[in-house]
């Protein structure tokens, strides 16, 4: 319990050295856990990418170098899947962030039932995925779904009922729509928390200077939010790019790169190739995120 000032007179360790040791002690549990659960399997997975892993237990796992990577890179389906992933991720990240921003700004005011309203906004994000997927499939069902009933029979917007979720034309937009709906509450929460800590005095000062609501938004709100928005985009990009269930459960006809990898790993039992795909993806993500962080966010 020695005061900080007195401690600096101790021989042997400087403040920064002690700080360093303390920091590592505080971080130890986190580092160990994440290392075990995440880092070790990642390394293992990278290694598996270079190995052919046969299902037959009598056959050994053989080191095949870059062969599996080469197979993947030469498969046109892989590149198509990458394009689909990019489209899906870009659309859902942009969509959910913008929607989250709009709703946060909308809800950043006093009104009756504000607490409950915020709870309701969160529901798409916190409910179990399989329930939401089935609810959507039910709503969009070509025969007994509400969407087809309302927009075909009641308001004749479309000529006939269609299978929104599975037809080639609509499957991707539907998956994008679903994922935007599901993930915008995350952006909403983060942005709202930040919005609430922007002091009102800033806005009042701007109003005195004659600023309208759009000017206030552009020159006060947005700069204050830039950090939060930046981090939301990064996290959502990383998370959505690697999402599997959110795509596969809703529609089997949107083959993004994670679905492509899943089909290799679990349908074809080809673990080595799936691991190679996984490593390639991770590389791509690391590269794109580092670029983004350096150039755009300038952290």
């Amino acid at each position: 319990m020695a005061p900080v000032l007195a401690a600096t007179r101790r021989r042997g360790s400087s403040v920064s050295q002690r700080e360093g040791r303390l920091a590592w002690a505080l971080l130890a549990p986190s580092v160990i856990l994440v290392g075990l659960v995440v880092v070790y399997p990642i390394i293992s997975s990278i290694r598996m990418g270079f190995t052919h892993i046969p299902l037959d237990p009598a056959m050994p796992e053989e080191f095949v170098g870059l062969e599996q990577y080469s197979e993947i890179v030469h498969d046109p389906e892989f590149w198509l899947a990458i394009v689909r992933s990019l489209v899906h991720t870009a659309a859902t990240v942009a969509g959910s962030t913008l929607l989250g921003l709009a709703v946060a700004v909308l809800m950043n005011r006093e009104f009756a039932g504000r607490g409950i309203a915020r709870g309701i906004v969160l529901m798409p994000y916190v409910a179990p995925l399989i329930s939401l997927v089935f609810a959507w499939r039910y709503m969009f069902h070509p025969v007994y779904g509400f969407v087809n009933y309302w927009f075909v029979d009641i308001l004749p917007i479309f000529s006939g009922p269609r299978d929104w979720v599975e037809s080639p034309a609509f499957a991707m937009p539907m998956v994008i729509l679903f994922d935007i709906w599901r993930y915008f509450p995350y952006a909403f929460l983060m942005i709202l928390a930040r919005l609430q800590s922007i002091p009102k005095t800033l806005y009042e000062a701007a109003e005195v200077d004659g600023a309208g609501s759009w000017a206030k938004f552009r020159h006060i709100t947005m700069p204050e939010l830039s950090f939060v928005l930046g981090s939301i985009v990064v996290l959502r990009w990383i998370w959505n790019f690697t999402k599997f269930d959110d795509v596969w459960l809703l529609s089997r006809n949107v083959v993004t790169v994670t679905v492509y990898a899943y089909l290799r790993a679990f349908q074809s039992f080809d673990l080595g190739q799936a691991a190679a795909i996984s490593s390639l993806l991770a590389l791509g993500l690391i590269a794109s995120v580092s670029l983004y962080v350096k150039k755009v966010l300038r952290w």
């Binding site: 070509p142 025969v143 009922p161 269609r162 299978d163 599975e166 037809s167 006809n253």
Partner: peptide, 10 residues
């Protein structure tokens, strides 16, 4: 058949 692809659930 109904519009869209069918499965056993349908």
């Amino acid at each position: 058949t109904p519009p869209g692809p069918e499965s056993w659930r349908d």
